[in-house]
Design a protein around this nucleic acid. Structure first.
Lengths: 321, 321
DNA sequence: TAAAAATACTCCATAGGTATTTTAT
DNA sequence: ATAAAATACCTATGGAGTATTTTTA
């Protein structure tokens, strides 16, 4: 009689990673092991359990019927295991377990965090945050390898097993130097945007792609610049515009303070905007805390932005890095 | 920074066993490993977690404050793990998971099972039973090593972490051969019981000790017999009485059929009786199924026994083997 | 024909064993 | 004095690595 049911938590994590990513090599990377190691362990597990979990004949890899049932219960084990681990970690740092590790994209972090932190401290002192500034792709990877609990970024991403919690819609506007042709307009039309003196963020920022979308640069593929310069920070772009000239695209939370030589010009309707939201792994056991965080962020942003609805805006899609 | 929280399900099982049994060596036995192996693994776990779980300075071994919190969550993991394992096992035998492995003592099995099985089959066909006839001590051991889910035996046992579900109270009566002095009585008084021709079950049966209690044999320690014979089965005792003579103590479910040469004599009030109940590990994840089983057993026994209440009887205690 | 998963092999960490010592009632 | 847990030491399994082959979209 087949008696023993032998398996390890590690093996279950590997299975979940493959399920999440639909790809052995990517799963291996997320688990910080080599692809053969992960493959072997999953084979061993399937062998020990006497059950084929994955149907490798399709790509991306699919679960078998039995695999679906297995994985659900495996998830429950890992869920409890996660709680166990955070209990341990909490005991080490003599803290109750209200800590969330948050990844925030650089075009959101400097504008949301200064608003969020005081609100959170006052309204939800039980929530402790550890914050990392990361670009979208890094946030996705870090979620998958469980290095962060939740990401704050431009959505929608629509990634398998990643849950999204939309928070608000942030409209864009144009910042140009006084005297710039765009500065004489009441409202900006997309078609008026001059490609030559647009300042862009460097590759990897999702806002770069959204800016290119707005300025119809995606179709032409190439774009000419008088000076080759791309920045890692919106603040640098703002200060470039203010001192040197040209224009750039700013999300509204970044327009609170602008230089004395700069002018802010709104778009004509429908205003281009980005959706900002939280993302986390569907099965995350701190779901409640994450929702508390989400509410706090909404509460912390200005009323006029909070009131904006998707249907009144031209919400841009997000290009994955 | 202390990063990794390394532990295995096996280690958690060891911890739970020590907690349950308050004793490293006994825990090791229940887990089918040597005492040093278990000791080492628990030390390693405590070391890896950076937490002292057990306070070894007292006996039986106690949990530390942190240990208490740890094992609660550890229990949740193992609970889910158990469900996972039975999912696997169920898939192997192509069965839904309604199977319970039941240990029954020999003085209950032949009288309860023939009544129970038809009831269960009719009323709860989703419950599948695997039955082992075991003496009390083996049932306790098998519960601890997880070889059975639940025991049906004489209670109360009052064992740490073992939950009891009393089912009914089974009164005793005396069976003697026609012509035996006891046979001329309407009601038996304890004091009238003659020690010389009492037939006893062999050592290991809890009923043996209860019979000795009733006949006040426990105090004298030694008892004289004309013939040295002890049986492993009540049916053998009944047939001995019927053909050879003497008397024995029978629980009422065993008195349905008696030999033609035998006489059944009831006790005077309060009637000595035993409590029969189910026992299982407190944390057992099939608690619901076990309760269903308990109800079915109650439903299957005769109404007159089912109606008896503890306060009207002299319920005997159980001597552990 | 490229990308992805499986196989082949080597290595080492560790869970397990037995024998023994240390520690507590 | 005795039972119980810890320590010492050995063994073997298997999880992880790199290099390579096989598979299949």
């Amino acid at each position: 009689m087949f008696q023993g049911v032998s398996y390890s938590l590690t093996q279950l994590e590997y299975v979940m990673a493959v399920h999440r990513l639909g790809h052995f090599a990517k799963a291996a990377e997320a688990c910080h092991v080599s692809q053969p190691t992960l493959s072997m362990q999953i084979q061993k597990l399937e062998n020990d359990l006497g059950i084929v979990i994955f149907d490798r004949s399709k790509k991306p890899i699919l679960l078998t019927e039995m695999g679906k049932r297995i994985i659900e219960q495996a998830q429950s084990i890992l869920f409890e295991a996660k709680k166990f681990e955070s209990l341990i970690k909490a005991s080490r740092s003599d803290r109750v377990d209200g800590k969330i590790v948050l990844g925030v994209i650089p075009t959101v972090a400097p504008y949301v965090l200064p608003r969020l932190l005081p609100v959170l401290e006052k309204e939800n002192p039980e929530v402790e945050l550890e914050i990392h500034e990361l670009q979208t792709q890094r946030i996705i990877d870090s979620l998958n390898s469980d290095e962060i609990d939740v990401g704050l970024l431009a959505t929608p991403l629509k990634i398998n097993q990643i849950h999204e919690f939309p928070l608000f819609y942030e409209p864009f506007s144009i910042l140009c130097k006084k005297g710039h042709p765009l500065g004489f307009l009441k409202k900006v039309k997309y078609s008026l945007l001059n490609l030559e003196d647009l300042w862009l963020l460097e590759e990897g920022h999702c806002l770069r792609h959204q800016a290119m979308d707005v300025c119809s640069l995606r179709k032409t593929k190439k774009y000419k610049r008088r000076y080759e310069f791309e920045s890692g920070s919106l603040e640098t772009l703002k200060s470039l515009v203010n001192s040197y000239g040209g224009y750039t695209l700013l999300p509204s939370l970044a327009t609170e303070v602008i230089g004395a030589n700069s002018l802010l010009v709104p778009f004509e309707r429908p205003t281009p905007a980005r959706e900002v939201g939280l993302v986390y792994r569907r099965e995350h056991y701190k779901k409640h805390l994450i929702e508390v965080l989400g509410e706090a962020i909404i509460a912390s942003i200005p009323q006029d932005i909070r009131a904006l609805r998707q249907k009144d805006l031209d919400v841009l899609s997000v290009e994955e890095g």
